[in-house]
């Protein structure tokens, strides 16, 4: 554990909490892509199956359980409890275009052709693109509430901080995992345009509004 990974994990946790609290307090999931949240639930489920086979640390187990539970709670709020506020007319990204290629790629490029390992690889590939339905929704409506922007910033920062963690681990522990690194770079790059808007607009107190 190093400072980059810890802050990355905390940033990830913060993102998930911001989203849950936002939906709960406003009693609304307007502006949130249910599809991205379904993809994240699928990501955590397929990645953390090793909870039953491999023990790493209490921290690791605890965080995995939190991520799984929080993602299912978010999906429940969007598709059940606050269904009436769900923006399904704008949430039209075709998720099969993300799920199927991620799955095929995980069969082709993986560390080991074993069920748990392929599901882990699939989750890494899928996570890297799982935010696309959300970014698509923001681009379709042309704007995002500040709280949604804070959520996206915290979620994007998490993988960016993991990149620093991987650089650190490469030098300090000679440890690296190319699959995670390449997918992590892709994931972080997808947020770059959003990061730019966040710094230039949201932090200056303006609403995130895309040019018409």
């Amino acid at each position: 554990m190093n400072i980059f990974r810890l802050t990355g994990d905390l940033s990830h946790l913060l993102a998930i909490i911001i989203l849950l609290v936002k939906i709960w307090k406003t009693r609304s999931c307007a502006g949130i892509s249910g599809k991205s949240q379904l993809l994240f639930a699928l990501v955590y489920t397929t990645r953390y199956l090793d909870l039953v086979s491999t023990y790493i640390s209490a921290y690791n187990t605890f965080m995995k359980l939190i991520f799984i539970c929080a993602s299912y709670a978010t999906v429940y709020l969007i598709y059940m409890k606050f269904k009436a506020t769900y923006d399904h007319n704008h949430d039209t990204f075709r998720v099969e275009f993300l799920i199927l290629p991620s799955f095929v790629l995980s069969l082709l490029i993986n560390h080991d052709f074993a069920v748990l390992e392929i599901l882990w690889t699939f989750s890494i590939y899928l996570e890297s693109v799982a935010i696309l339905p959300q970014l698509f929704l923001v681009s379709k409506t042309g704007e995002a509430e500040s709280i949604t922007s804070h959520y996206l910033f915290a979620l994007g920062s998490y993988r960016g901080l993991y990149l620093l963690n991987w650089i650190y681990r490469y030098y300090a522990e000679s440890h690296y995992d190319l699959i995670a690194i390449v997918a992590g770079v892709v994931q972080t790059v997808l947020y770059c345009d959003f990061f730019y808007l966040y710094v230039t607009k949201v932090l200056k107190g303006k609403k995130l509004q895309l040019p018409a």
Partner: peptide
């Protein structure tokens, strides 16, 4: 070492 079946990150 690259790759191991034990993924210790989240």
């Amino acid at each position: 070492k690259s790759s191991s079946n034990k993924h210790d990150e989240l």
